[in-house]
């Protein structure tokens, strides 16, 4: 949630599109959008930026879909709206590392940004959902197709191998058996 502003800004900018033609490569308006996304925002002497992993996800999206000039201009206008909204804030919401401290923004500002993002996504056939501080944008028809997520970059990659746990399971069985035996034996002796 701490980075939700930059996430939402990125979402508004990037996903106010209609996925139309499947084509790799960036056209002119997409290149302009990527340039705008990579620009830093300075507010009250502090500089904020959209994290690289979010920008990359946006670029990967653009590389797979063709954006019309009209759509691209809409996105660029939303970029400016987002910048203006942040620039108008008087509270210090930018951390030392350039990330946005969401808790420093008012509920009203956060709501505005989120509403914009949800609306933009809905208009272009995308669905924005959030749960447990994770924002996900998927295809509205197929939620298994993910275009964006702010979940952890490094995933849990530990597997469960039955053969590997065999010695451990055997040890548990032995210990459980010994404990049960000791308990019953002790009771019998006490009686």
């Amino acid at each position: 949630m701490k980075r939700i502003v930059s996430v939402v800004l990125c979402l508004i900018l990037v996903f106010a599109l209609v996925p139309s033609v499947f084509a790799a490569g960036l056209n002119d308006v997409e290149t302009q959008i990527m340039t705008a996304l990579k620009e830093k925002v300075t507010v009250n002497g502090k500089t904020a930026y959209i994290p690289t992993e979010y920008v990359n996800q946006a670029e990967n999206f653009f590389l797979s879909y063709e954006t019309t000039d009209e759509q691209g201009q809409y996105v660029l206008e939303r970029i400016q709206e987002g910048r203006d909204l942040l620039a108008a804030q008087t509270t210090a919401f930018i951390s030392a590392d350039g990330s946005v401290n969401l808790s420093a923004l008012s509920y009203d500002v956060k709501s505005q940004l989120l509403d914009l993002a949800v609306d933009a996504c809905a208009q272009v056939g995308l669905k924005l959902t959030w749960a447990n501080r994770v924002i996900t944008i998927t295809d509205a028809q197929d939620s298994s197709v993910v275009y964006f997520s702010n979940s952890a970059i490094i995933k849990t990659t530990g597997g469960f191998d039955a053969m590997t746990i065999l010695p451990w399971a055997a040890a548990v069985v032995v210990v459980a058996g010994l404990v049960a035996f000791a308990f019953i034996y002790r009771r019998k002796m006490a009686a």
Partner: peptide, 27 residues
């Protein structure tokens, strides 16, 4: 990740330039 190795979509595809970050289970 149950099907094989998985590329993080916030990284780059091979050949594009940049880091291609790929994870896989340790089993």
């Amino acid at each position: 990740l149950k099907k094989g190795a998985g590329m993080y979509i916030g990284s780059r595809i091979p050949g594009y330039g940049g880091t291609c970050l790929v994870s896989g289970h340790n089993t």
